[in-house]
């Protein structure tokens, strides 16, 4: 199983995918906000979303799993 991790600590501003969605490599999946800056997190590889581990307003740390993907 593959996962998409947070690239920085911050608050989840937007979750752009839902369970069952197909994502492509490079696609924005979650929008994080920290210190007045919005940073989109992208899928490094393609796959199907098997679980969304965060919701809008969640606080995440650098490296936390945001999304799990199946091939």
């Amino acid at each position: 199983m593959k996962s998409i991790q947070a690239t920085m600590a911050g608050t989840v501003l937007q979750v752009m995918v839902s369970e069952g969605d197909r994502v492509e490599s490079g696609q924005d999946v979650v929008l994080l906000e920290s210190m007045k800056m919005e940073v989109p997190v992208q899928a490094e590889e393609g796959g199907t979303v098997s679980a969304v581990k965060v919701e809008v307003g969640s606080f995440v740390s650098d490296g936390d799993i945001l999304i799990e993907l199946d091939d």
Binding site: M8, A9, G10, S34, M35, M37, V39
Partner: peptide, 13 residues
């Protein structure tokens, strides 16, 4: 700045 020096991303903590 509390930020990653290469990616310029925030680093709170």
């Amino acid at each position: 700045y509390a930020e990653d020096p290469e990616r310029f991303l925030p680093s709170p903590g």
